[in-house]
């Protein structure tokens, strides 16, 4: 993995594209109150947000832990640490029916193996469903998180493997085929409002809902993003550059990663 180096006065900070994704995701949580968290990068990002700018962010894990305040990064969504530090531990029917479907989650974090230009996601199979080349874990909580959280943030690396013209399986709905589909299907949340990749940020066009590149991470050129996208990538007129990782973010991130139980 290539490290990015940014000079800040006399300091030079080295970090990876994954670090940049996590920091961008943590920043995106500023101002939200309740976040539905999956394991991996989303969990790291949500805990980084808590450790830096949003100490009161309520983390909800699908195992039923509401308001978890882990002091070490969990390996699974149901580690004992999450239950022990939670405000409440509820059943799985409760989490999905009352809290997610009930519209009580501000923002949900999702990842996937594939994503298309309308931010629909595949986490089911690569190749034909009946005879898959790769059998992925499947839907889990993703479809309802995407349906009912007020907003969704997608974390996914940008390449021809992950960004695809056509999903092999639509596990989770972003915007379907365009602006009317979410309403037509009765999905109450706004859908994905931000996609964070290793190259930059994409947001849905306000009219067509097609994803538009709105920012690049430091050191990334737009041609790289175009080359990593199999369709003709839409680019915002006001393309911005994300802030590089600050020392505080990097310190917070490294402190968190030091607590990860890798087994």
């Amino acid at each position: 993995m290539t490290a990015t180096s940014t000079a800040r006065g006399e300091q030079s900070i080295e970090y990876s594209p994954d670090d940049m994704m996590i920091a961008a995701a943590a920043r995106a949580l500023r101002g939200y109150r309740v976040c539905f968290v999956g394991i991996g990068l989303p969990s790291t990002a949500a805990n980084l947000a808590r450790a830096t700018h949003s100490p009161d962010l309520v983390l909800v894990y699908e195992s039923g832990t509401i308001g978890a305040k882990p002091t070490r990064l969990p390996l699974s969504i149901g580690d004992g640490e999450l239950a022990e530090t939670a405000d409440a531990v509820v059943s799985v029917p409760e989490i999905f029916n009352y809290w997610v479907q009930g519209g009580r989650i501000d923002v949900g974090f999702l990842g996937a193996a594939q994503m298309d230009r309308f931010a629909n996601l595949n986490s089911t199979t690569i190749g034909d469903y009946e005879h898959p080349a790769v059998r992925l874990p499947g839907a889990g909580g993703a479809p309802e998180i995407a349906a009912s959280c007020k907003e969704v943030i997608v974390l996914i690396r940008q390449s021809h493997r992950t960004f695809v013209e056509r999903l092999d399986f639509r596990t989770t709905v972003g915007f379907g085929e365009g602006p009317d589909d979410r309403r037509r299907w009765g999905l109450r949340g706004s859908g994905p409002t931000l996609v964070i990749t290793d190259l930059g940020l994409l947001r849905p066009d306000p009219v067509t809902r097609e994803l538009t590149m709105t920012a690049l991470h430091p050191g990334v050129e737009i041609d790289q993003a175009r080359a990593a996208t199999p369709w003709e990538l839409r680019v915002a007129e006001q393309l911005t550059t994300t802030e590089p990782l600050s020392e505080e973010e990097l310190r917070g991130l490294r402190d968190l990663q030091a607590t990860q139980d890798h087994g």
């Binding site: 839907a139 309802e144 639509r170 596990t171 709905v173 979410r182 299907w185 999905l187």
Partner: peptide
């Protein structure tokens, strides 16, 4: 009854 599945390929499977 729940809100879900619509628009996904799970529905037909």
């Amino acid at each position: 009854v729940l809100r879900g599945y619509f628009g996904t390929d799970l529905m037909g499977r």
